[in-house]
Simulated assay, not measured.
Amino acid sequence: MRLTRATTALLTVVAVTLLACGSGGGDTLGPGAQGGDSAPAKGEKKILLEVTGAKSADITYGLGTDQSQEQGAKVPWKKELTSSEALLIVTLLAQNKGSGTIGCKITIDGEVVKENTSKGEFAVVTCNN
């Protein structure tokens, strides 16, 4: 197979673009995650996400339209987020990596706003505020 200069240039641009997009240099803490234990700024809401139950779980969580995932996360699991959004949409989904009971809880500014449990092999639980 013989490649022309244009084809070679196009393949090079595609390869560089794919490498740049997959470099992972962005925010890896997840939506709204903070790097330390600092208190939220004025007007910000403090959000605590929790998953309890089995030894490990696949967890997906989000704040607004931003979603993050942790595969095989050790349970019990907690994630603290902050947000100054007027309309706060928080989601939490977890799936057991075996059998038993798995639970989720969303707490906003110290008040539990949603709590749920599921039972069974590879059970899935969801919490949305």
Rank of each mutant, 00 (worst) to 15 (best):
M1Y: 13
M1P: 13
M1C: 10
T4R: 14
T4P: 09
T8I: 12
T8H: 12
A9S: 04
L11F: 12
L11I: 05
L11R: 11
V13E: 09
V14Y: 04
A15L: 15
L18R: 06
L19F: 14
L19Q: 14
C21L: 14
C21M: 13
S23E: 07
G25T: 10
G26K: 12
G26S: 15
G30A: 13
G30N: 10
G30P: 08
G30H: 10
P31H: 04
P31W: 03
A33V: 01
Q34N: 12
G35N: 10
G36I: 00
A39Q: 15
P40T: 03
K42H: 06
G43L: 03
G43T: 01
K45Y: 05
K45T: 05
K45I: 00
K46T: 04
I47V: 14
L49P: 10
L49Q: 11
E50A: 14
E50H: 08
V51G: 06
T52Y: 10
T52I: 00
G53F: 06
K55L: 09
S56A: 13
D58W: 08
D58T: 11
T60M: 04
Y61C: 02
G62N: 11
L63P: 04
G64L: 07
T65V: 04
D66R: 13
D66C: 10
D66M: 04
Q69I: 00
E70R: 15
Q71M: 12
G72C: 08
K74D: 11
K74W: 00
P76W: 04
W77A: 02
W77E: 01
K78D: 13
K78S: 15
K79M: 00
K79H: 10
E80C: 01
T82L: 02
T82Y: 11
T82P: 05
S84T: 06
A86F: 01
L87K: 15
L87I: 04
T91A: 09
T91E: 11
L93M: 08
L93H: 05
L93K: 14
Q95G: 03
K97S: 14
G98K: 14
G98S: 15
S99A: 14
G100P: 04
G100A: 05
G100L: 05
I106P: 02
I108D: 09
V113G: 03
V113Y: 03
K114G: 02
E115M: 05
E115I: 00
N116C: 06
N116Q: 14
S118M: 02
E121I: 00
A123S: 11
T126W: 03
N129P: 04
